[in-house]
Amino acid sequence: MIEKCWNEIGIQGDRSCAELNTVIHCRNCSVYTRAGRNLLERDAPENYRAEWTNLLAQTPTPVTSDRNTLPQLQRATAEFFDPLSLVIFRLGAEWLALAASTFQEITPPSPIHTLPHRSNEILLGLVNIRGELLPCISLSNLLGLERQGTHPKLLNQQGDLTRVVYSRMVVVNIQGDIWVFSVDEIEGIHRCDRHLIEEVPSVVSKAPISYTKWIVNWRNKKINYLDEELVFSTLKRRIL
């Protein structure tokens, strides 16, 4: 039985493990490393080799990578079970997500250099990322979100210190255009099954919903999965 403490008191649980203060993430812990090694070095099940030998000896069936050539029902089934890769982050009180393929880099905050007569509430200026000056924007202002004061320490409902979070800057590439914006917290890359996705309600009052492609159910939260093409095409119109 593999000890899976990371799902209970670790990074995927309530984060109450005292070792997190030292190792930061479960993947840096010896328990996590030992569990992975035991998984890879475990004994093969009975008849495992015989089953694979018979399987590999069978005549392969041609497989097409073009889903458009598949029957309609088979194509719909393949799309339903194909998970989405997304990056979940927080702006103020709002949890949002963008396609993982749009993210190029995640960095600590860097100084923003304003542009004379060009910087405004959306285009904040330029930021130096690995020696390259890139345009830095306020995604919160573009989406019309209300910003709240952010603190690195978060408290639970009882007022007890539960975890520490830090703001980050993210670099995204949208159809060759590179932008940088700040987030108050980032949860990293997640694979989301499509059955956890909901259509956007037709009547809503929250500002970012007009830029939302889907609603994603994640850890008892409703995440606005942003339509990156709509968001950044609107951005270009607003600042150019």
Results as ranks from 00 to 15, higher is better:
residue 206 K to N: 14
residue 33 T to E: 10
residue 55 L to D: 05
residue 103 F to T: 02
residue 129 I to P: 06
residue 208 P to W: 08
residue 33 T to P: 06
residue 216 V to N: 03
residue 112 I to E: 14
residue 159 G to D: 00
residue 4 K to C: 09
residue 80 F to D: 04
residue 202 S to A: 05
residue 189 I to F: 03
residue 210 S to L: 12
residue 234 T to N: 07
residue 17 C to L: 09
residue 143 L to F: 08
residue 62 P to E: 09
residue 215 I to M: 09
residue 29 C to T: 12
residue 142 L to I: 08
residue 209 I to W: 04
residue 202 S to T: 08
residue 50 A to P: 02
residue 32 Y to A: 12
residue 220 N to I: 09
residue 91 L to A: 03
residue 172 V to C: 15
residue 174 I to K: 07
residue 192 C to S: 13
residue 149 G to I: 04
residue 148 Q to Y: 15
residue 82 D to H: 09
residue 36 G to C: 03
residue 5 C to V: 07
residue 25 H to K: 10
residue 43 D to H: 08
residue 18 A to F: 05
residue 140 S to M: 11
residue 12 Q to M: 04
residue 203 V to A: 03
residue 95 W to V: 15
residue 43 D to F: 12
residue 150 T to S: 08
residue 71 P to E: 10
residue 123 L to T: 00
residue 30 S to D: 15
residue 36 G to D: 08
residue 131 G to T: 07
residue 189 I to D: 01
residue 175 Q to F: 14
residue 88 I to D: 08
residue 162 T to M: 09
residue 216 V to K: 04
residue 126 L to R: 02
residue 33 T to G: 06
residue 70 L to P: 01
residue 188 G to Q: 04
residue 235 L to S: 07
residue 21 N to S: 07
residue 46 E to F: 06
residue 5 C to M: 06
residue 230 L to R: 14
residue 105 E to K: 12
residue 122 I to W: 06
residue 237 R to D: 01
residue 140 S to W: 05
residue 54 N to L: 11
residue 164 V to I: 15
residue 206 K to L: 15
residue 98 L to T: 02
residue 75 R to M: 12
residue 157 Q to W: 01
residue 67 R to K: 04
residue 148 Q to L: 14
residue 193 D to N: 07
residue 84 L to D: 13
residue 78 A to G: 00
residue 233 S to I: 07
residue 30 S to I: 00
residue 238 R to E: 11
residue 99 A to T: 08
residue 111 P to F: 06
residue 198 E to S: 09
residue 139 L to K: 05
residue 119 S to H: 08
residue 194 R to H: 07
residue 90 R to Q: 14
residue 81 F to N: 12
residue 43 D to K: 10
residue 6 W to I: 15
